[in-house]
Design a protein around this nucleic acid. Structure first.
Lengths: 135, 135
DNA sequence: CCGTATCCGGAGGGATACTG
DNA sequence: CAGTATCCCTCCGGATACGG
């Protein structure tokens, strides 16, 4: 699979690979919420907030595919479906919390740097930079 | 700012925020490479491989804006520009390595789950699922 | 209640050409 | 060498409507 056995510090390609998995708009939020125990579809939908049913379905399917969550169907009427983190999903959650801690710890510093940068950009060197990137 | 003061375990919004910063296609790769010491523009371009100069510029600008890398210009001819991780960038790199370690440790398990899922999808329940999500 | 199918706008990102 | 500007196309993701 690899064209050559390149071997950078933390095996860059693998990191990028998992980041593509988890770096989308909703996966992490869903995993975090599932960290509080199994949830039903619409329950999850309400808690996450702002996600469309389409995106929730796709996100859950992706997580299920990668063995991070399980999907349990109860063939009742009305139907009931539970989603739950697997062991793999739990371990991912822990790792993601590490990133979360970093984010919380350094959030202010990042925001400050951002303001500084934006201030200089729209300043005196004539190149009217318009970066109003409100994350 | 927030419509309501929701407050999930690891402050979900902040995690998502930083993930939007780092979860794009190239940021992590650039940060990892910069972890090996300061690099020049085209040097970085070669090492990363597959990135366009447009994207490298945008990625570096973004990282610079957030205070993760510094940009040093030497007004020589031909011009020379060095990019280097800041302290903040280094600490991010460490955190990302945590995720990287997880990715490496669980890569096989994920790939296995993926194959299993794909096998069942194109199989016997008739609903031709076509999710070839190749990261 | 739990999805799937379709439509569609907009952001992401590659290729290329030009500048200092 | 180190960028910037433009074009263009793909895919993400929201809205809506329908099926089991």
């Amino acid at each position: 699979m690899s064209p050559s056995h390149i071997h950078v510090p933390a095996d860059c390609r693998t990191v990028t690979e998992i980041l593509s998995r988890v770096g989308d708009k909703w996966s992490v939020q869903v995993v975090v919420q599932l960290g509080g125990g199994p949830k039903r579809f619409n329950e999850l939908r309400r808690i996450v907030g702002g996600i469309s049913q389409r995106m929730l379905t796709l996100t859950l399917r992706g997580l299920e595919r990668d063995g991070l969550v399980t999907r349990t169907v109860y063939p009742t009427i009305p139907p009931r479906v539970d989603y739950q983190l697997t062991g793999l999903g739990c371990s991912l959650l822990k790792t993601v919390r590490g990133l979360g801690d970093w984010a919380i710890a350094n959030r202010d510093e990042i925001l400050a740097a951002r303001r500084r940068f934006d201030a200089e950009s729209g300043d005196d060197h004539g190149a009217g930079q318009k970066q109003s990137n409100a994350a």
